[in-house]
């Protein structure tokens, strides 16, 4: 089950459509990192609204993804974590430290706009 990656201006949007196996997740990570380079994207949104479980592997892969993209100079935001999933994650000690999160796609876009515009218009602010 491949995750479709949408290019929207300077951003890439990956909307997960169904439960993912570990291999799918790693494939998503690699594809996003590659596409950020190809399209010189400034921001990435990963929409996990449909995920009903986020275990240690998924959290770690997402965190790695965010850090790898950061090394490419782009910002990532994870959107759509469900209340129950968040509750289970923190019980497991998975807090996605250092990873930006937002409520949904709309909020994620607003976050990226804020982050990336700031970077361009006033580098001293960053």
């Amino acid at each position: 089950m491949q995750v479709p990656i949408l290019k929207q201006g300077a951003y890439l949007i990956a909307s997960i459509q169904s439960a993912l196996s570990d291999a799918d997740l790693m494939q998503l990570r690699d594809a996003l990192v590659a596409k950020v380079s190809t399209f010189r994207s400034r921001g990435v949104i990963v929409d996990v609204t449909v995920l009903d479980v986020m275990d240690s592997f998924a959290s770690r892969t997402l965190r790695d993804l965010v850090h790898m993209i950061q090394l490419r100079g782009a910002t990532t935001v994870i959107v759509g974590i469900q209340p129950e999933v968040a509750f289970a994650m923190v019980q497991l000690g998975l807090t996605l430290e250092g990873v930006a999160t937002a409520l949904d796609l709309e909020e994620g876009l607003a976050y990226l706009d804020l982050k990336t515009i700031k970077k361009v218009s006033n580098p001293r602010d960053g």
Partner: peptide, 10 residues
């Protein structure tokens, strides 16, 4: 935990 979970929601 509540603070952390809230942050995960954004």
């Amino acid at each position: 935990l509540t603070v952390e979970a809230s942050r995960l929601l954004g």
